[in-house]
Design a binder for these strands. Structure first.
Lengths: 219, 219
DNA sequence: TTACCGATTGACCGAATGGTTAGACCTTTC
DNA sequence: GAAAGGTCTAACCATTCGGTCAATCGGTAA
């Protein structure tokens, strides 16, 4: 699809179609995200998009199809590539950058993150595809961390107190915990930098930059 | 139908009423928990409870009122008192027991935990009272941990790398992270004992020989 | 002009929803 | 007996839901 949609301003019929389709998606995105699937009616979407209800059913065969389209559009910003900007860093910096990235992403995209989690928890059936994609992203992130930690351990930057897998599990658990607090208690819960510092501390032993603590039992 | 077998109040009319009310609550509990508020219809509840729909509206003025009643009943097992069984332990053991308690509770009550979280995330308006109660429980747990860690630090059992507040924040984040994995990835994610050990390790420093097997693992 | 076709609409449909009502049932009290 | 009142139900109501359909609009090609 999307053959010649580049010439937006022209008078081609596709342009009109694309535009209305986009309006519908935009309206549906907002409504679904704020109220969920079952609580949002097609009439509301139509009204919000300033379009007749029948047109929605011309663009999307069914309410579920519209919903899935919305999910996929909301999922787009989740696909980033970390590799490019991290290539030059040493492992320690990469790991901390990765952690920092997770935290700031969650904070910046809190509303859609909340939406996805709610959706996956509630409507197992409707969100099968979504769950697959999210778990895949999640697994990718985890694998990246595992490998970074393993490399750091090989280079001796990082003590071998735990296996890379269990260390990663612990770190990710902590990150998810922060996410939970963020979702339920609002922004105030924990400032990201503190969390990054704690992770660095736990993983590498007490490090230079924050000297406030005395010698540690890092063992 | 099963008229006067209860014998509680002899032949008083209230017995009938109480019984049907309970049946309704039981059915509603199951349906609401599995499908959510909007996806559950009063007719379904009536059918499941083998009762006429009108009777539900006689017991509960409105669907929302029934829902709130269900929430409160589901919330009952969350109120426990930890103090009694922990009085005799030293701080280290108390802290680890508290962590272990959190983990096993989440595992044993996974379905209602999932229900509450979903509900709080989705229907902010419907769950105001619920959110208040849950946050209060949460705050209580947190306060307990903070005080235990503070006492442990005073006694020198626990190094003072972090303030009790931030250490507690970190631990609880890790616990919530485990909860998240449990909710999304099923049982397999992390075995509780490993998590307890990691927490102990992080908080008290690595106590060389397999430490937790003093008298702790009893609980 | 006419014929065609993608895009768009208002009016409509059957099913289900939350909620109401009029009255029946049952037990106690006089 | 009859009156009273708590408990329960079948039938009903207005509304909304997801979805359909015949008809139209606007631009393009002949």
């Amino acid at each position: 699809m999307a053959a010649s949609q580049v010439k937006i301003g022209s008078a081609e019929p596709q342009a009109h179609s694309q535009h209305s389709r986009d309006e519908i998606l935009k309206a549906a995105m907002q409504l679904f995200a704020n109220r969920g699937f079952h609580e949002t009616s097609m009439s509301e979407v139509a009204r919000e998009a300033r379009v007749s209800k029948a047109l929605i059913f011309w663009h999307f065969k069914t309410k579920e199809e519209l919903f899935v389209a919305v999910l996929n559009r909301l999922l787009e910003p989740y696909y980033i590539d970390f590799a490019e900007e991290a290539a030059a860093m040493d492992e320690r910096t990469q790991i901390l950058t990765l952690v920092r990235f997770y935290l700031s992403f969650v904070r910046d995209n809190a509303s859609s993150v909340r939406f996805f989690l709610t959706q996956m928890l509630r409507d197992r059936h409707l969100s099968e595809g979504l769950t697959d994609q999210v778990l895949k992203l999640y697994g990718g992130y985890r694998a990246m961390l595992v490998e970074l930690i393993a490399r750091a351990q090989e280079k001796g930057i990082c003590p071998k107190r735990f296996t890379p897998e269990s260390a990663t599990g612990f770190i990710i658990s902590a990150l998810n915990g922060i996410l939970v607090e963020h979702l339920f208690l609002g922004e105030s819960a924990i400032e990201p930098e503190g969390a990054v510092e704690m992770v660095g501390d736990w993983l590498f032993g007490n490090s230079g930059p924050s000297p406030s603590d005395g010698g540690i039992s890092a063992a």
